[in-house]
């Protein structure tokens, strides 16, 4: 079941997605054998308290969240969590966030070399204060600048998590590939809104939130496929995966691995079930590894 994401070999094709697994230390009924790796909850240099409630609302086949990247800051992460990661038998990537390229760079420099930190997943869906709050991920130059800033400060794998809120994901994908990304993670949540008709107001206090869950899966498969067609580096598919068949769709559409997120809220065994289901699918067809799956990835 092992897969190669660039130079890094994962023992399985499934990672736990950022923001749905905390720092991996509080996950209930965790079956570690099924995890190829884990991406930590997004972290900033400094602690952040997050947004006021309500922070989540369920929508048809999905949920909106506006947590506001609540977190303890990088020093607490290094002190409280990294030592535990160093003892685990799967790699932990840190999802890094900042308000400027310099902040991403500082965060990377601080985490690089810390035992337990296997690599970085750059969240480029953050507002860039130096560009009037424009999201890094919506601008190929800003996305590339952040990637470059991180790349220059570490030799560990650097993955970039792409936002779907763009008109052409291939443009961003190529820009961060050129800036030195080792892999792409596609995709982050879609921005959405839900209105409470009792009070004529948005249900979330932040007004908008990130939509996740099976509701976004066909959109995510398409965007991950588009990203995979645009670049030569591996793409890790994310978006509404709840079953092995869902994950296999991403793999056939051109992804090397997948991340499972919201499904674990619903089913604590989701990752193990996806893992075992992929193994059964491959076994039934005489395929020895996920890399042997036929890919639908026309190059034009």
């Amino acid at each position: 079941m092992s897969v190669d994401v660039g130079a890094l070999t994962l023992r399985g094709p499934i990672l736990a997605a950022s923001g749905t697994f905390g720092y991996g230390t509080e996950v209930p009924l965790l079956e570690r054998r099924a995890l190829g790796g884990m991406v930590s909850k997004g972290i900033f240099l400094r602690p952040r308290s997050g947004t006021p409630p309500p922070r989540i609302v369920e929508t048809p086949s999905g949920m909106l969240n506006a947590i506001g990247l609540q977190g303890p800051g990088v020093e607490a992460l290094i002190r409280d969590y990294a030592p535990k990661w160093a003892e685990w038998d799967f790699p932990v990537f840190v999802n890094i966030n900042g308000e400027s390229a310099a902040e991403y760079a500082e965060l990377t420099a601080r985490l690089d070399g810390v035992p337990g930190v296997a690599g970085f997943e750059i969240n480029i869906s953050c507002p860039n204060v130096e560009q009037g709050g424009l999201y890094f991920g919506n601008d190929p130059r800003a996305a590339a600048a952040v990637t470059d800033a991180v790349r220059k400060r570490t030799r560990l794998p650097v993955w970039v998590k792409l936002t779907p809120m763009v008109s052409d994901i291939g443009v961003i994908a190529r820009a961060v590939e050129a800036a030195g990304a080792d892999a792409l993670c596609a995709i982050n949540t879609f921005v959405g809104m839900s209105i409470d008709l009792n009070v004529y107001q948005p249900r979330l206090s932040f007004r908008t939130g990130g939509l996740s869950g099976p509701a976004i899966r066909p959109l995510a498969v398409h965007l991950a496929h588009q990203a995979a067609r645009a670049v030569r580096i591996p793409v890790i598919g994310i978006g509404g995966i709840a079953t092995a068949e869902d994950a296999l769709e991403f793999l056939v559409a051109g992804c090397t691995a997948v991340q499972v997120g919201t499904a674990t809220f619903v089913n604590p065994r989701a990752i193990a079930e996806v893992h075992d289901g992929i193994a059964a699918f491959l076994g039934a067809r005489g395929l020895s590894s996920p890399a042997d799956l036929p890919r639908y990835l026309p190059r034009d």
Binding site: T20, R55, I56
Partner: peptide
């Protein structure tokens, strides 16, 4: 959301 402490939705 999750009920187990990871999603931070029940702030």
């Amino acid at each position: 959301g999750c009920g187990t402490g990871v999603c931070l939705g029940c702030a």
